[in-house]
Design a protein around this nucleic acid. Structure first.
Length: 513
RNA sequence: GUCCCCAUCGUCUAGCGGCCAGGACGGCGCCCUUUCAAGGCGCAAACACGGGUUCGAUUCCCGUUGGGGGCACCA
């Protein structure tokens, strides 16, 4: 591989339509992080808004930590939340391959070109030496980067040491007369870094693998990326990458650096803040639309007023100039609220789909049972629709429906509601009403009959309905009473009422004593 | 330590020289109501500080303070 080979390989991809080309380039060293998805969403939405191309590239140049399973998980998470990509793994594209580990020949060729034009030099300092120097520097005058020991080696001596098989890396030779490195950032505006304090950073490791700042710049250029939308943490890498672009004679794209997402304590969001990966939120029962909606709003605003919007709206209205410069604190309470909005809109069919795994794993029912009795399960939806913010909450909300003739009583509810005088008599009359064979077993008929009973007994709604609620559900907090009764079998209802009677009696007596 | 970035209610934000500083989450109160929710109505809640520029600064400039990020043969 030589410098001229590089020129053959290196013809930046350009479809010639002047359209936007953006990329999301995760490294598969773990799950897809919240900050990562947000970056992906902004890239994706930006491409969709402008009729451009969204590219997914896997930056897997860290062999120690990159795994195929992680790559898989990232692709799944991207799809789950609602994104698709025009080029990348699974779909291919004109710039294949989209895995950096498969692009070694390209980086090698780029290095040859840089060797040929003198923009890199070999460095023989060992990692230990460098670490020692760094430590010493940091203690005294403050760290200022590599001391450029090997930069002054004569080409002959350097070549001789390479030929002798001495271990070495390749460093970029920051031009002496470079002056300030200035670039445009669509979010921060003009950014300036002083080249004279820039480090001669490593581009190729001693084991022959390229480093991030090198591969990223090379690939972004070759793939014809027009806008690099990425995390703020890369801001100070940008001048390094610009040096690579310049050494290779490549065009510098537009940048857009996103501020970080912080945890509730104002520190960078990390594992110690709890769930931070898309998959974790998925498992916690959040809906993809809610994640997409909430994350879009974390650092971007549609108009300052609208908080709930569809994927389509996002794609039709996303713009970089409405991205905020402030770091944003991730607020799970608001995420939960957004989620509850989508739960209210999702419909009974999808509800059963999503609730099923939680009901099954809680041991309340089985997948087969749900399959053969879908209609009944769909009727649960209206009962919980406005009462749960995340899917797992469905378990506690409706567990009482699955206990047959048994009731799991909440002590406080029993004491407060069933312990009053005359409750057993009230229960008796409820049994009489609900035990009537002529009563149609649906919420409307049940409500009508129960209200008639109210009239007959001359009691307030609370005095009868709360008794029924606790007797049937075990708790003074439950979904709507008549709908709940209708979902239980008449046998179960009567049995539960019967067994509540002695409990009411005993509670009352205990109170008297 | 050093370089870079940021600064409006508790939180996410609107604002791009003149606004009673708007919306949303959360909080609180009232209404509705058989519980819990949902819903409706309402309340409290912010321009970090100090200098300039200007007839006029939340908005522009400079400091201070506070916060964040980078400074690896990680990405």
């Amino acid at each position: 591989m030589t410098a001229s080979d590089f020129d053959k390989i290196f013809s930046p991809y350009d479809p010639g339509d002047g359209k936007v080309r953006v990329r999301f380039a995760p490294s598969p060293t773990g799950q897809l992080h919240i900050g990562g998805v947000r970056t992906a969403i902004y890239n994706w939405a930006f491409a969709r808004r402008n009729g451009g191309t969204f590219i997914l590239r896997i930056d897997d140049t860290d062999p120690e930590r990159s795994t195929e399973a992680n790559t898989r998980a990232i692709l799944d998470a991207m799809k789950w939340i609602g994104m698709d990509w025009d080029e990348g793994p699974e779909v291919g594209g004109p710039c294949e391959p989209y895995f950096q580990t498969q692009r070694a020949h390209i980086y090698q060729a780029a290095l040859e070109k840089m060797k040929a034009n003198g923009s890199v030099y070999p460095c023989f300092c060992s990692a230990e030496e460098l670490a020692a120097k760094r430590e010493a520097n940091q203690k005294s005058a403050g760290y200022t980067g590599y001391d450029r020991t090997c930069r002054s080696l004569s080409p002959e001596e350097a070549q001789a040491r390479i030929d002798a098989g001495e271990s070495h890396v390749w460093r970029v030779k920051v031009p002496e007369d470079r002056g300030d490195i200035v670039f445009e950032d669509a979010i921060y505006g003009t950014c300036t870094f002083h080249a004279d304090i820039m480090d001669d950073f490593i581009v190729m490791r001693s084991d022959g693998t390229p480093t991030y700042n090198f591969t990223t710049a090379v690939d972004d250029a070759i793939m014809g990326i027009t806008h690099i939308i990425r995390g703020d943490d890369h801001l100070s890498n940008t001048p390094r990458q610009i040096l690579v672009y310049e050494a290779l004679g490549m065009k510098v794209p537009m940048f857009a650096h996103l501020s970080m997402i912080l945890g509730p304590d104002g520190k960078r969001l990390s594992k110690r803040h709890g769930a931070t990966s898309v998959q974790a939120f998925r498992e916690a029962g959040y809906l993809p639309e809610a994640m997409m909606n909430y994350l879009s709003l974390l650092g971007w605003s549609l108009d300052g007023e609208t908080t709930i919007f569809s994927l389509e709206t996002l794609c039709n209205s996303f713009s970089i100039d409405r991205i905020s410069r402030n770091p944003a604190i991730f607020d799970e309470t608001k995420l939960a609220w957004v989620n509850s909005v989508y739960i209210k809109e999702m419909g009974a069919k999808r509800f059963v789909e999503l609730a099923a795994p939680y009901l099954v794993s809680a041991g309340l029912t089985t997948a087969e049972e749900i399959e053969s009795n879908r209609g009944w399960y769909e009727e649960i939806y209206p009962l919980v629709r406005e009462r749960i913010k995340v899917m797992p909450e469905v378990v506690d909300a409706v567990a009482f429906l699955f206990r047959g003739t048994e009731v799991e009583f909440d002590e406080k509810s029993v004491a407060k509601v069933l312990g009053k005088e005359g409750v057993p008599e009230v229960i008796d009359s409820i049994i009489e009403v609900l035990g009537d064979d002529g009563l149609a077993w649906n919420a409307e008929a049940i409500e009508e009959a129960m209200r008639a009973l109210l009239e007959k007994l001359g009691k307030k709604p609370k005095e009868v309905f709360q008794v029924a609620r606790v007797a049937l559900t075990g708790s003074m907090v439950s979904p709507p009473l008549f709908e709940s009764i209708a979902l239980l079998s008449r046998e179960a209802v009567l049995a539960r009422l019967e067994s509540a009677k002695p409990i009411a009696q005993a509670t009352f007596e205990a109170k008297q004593a």
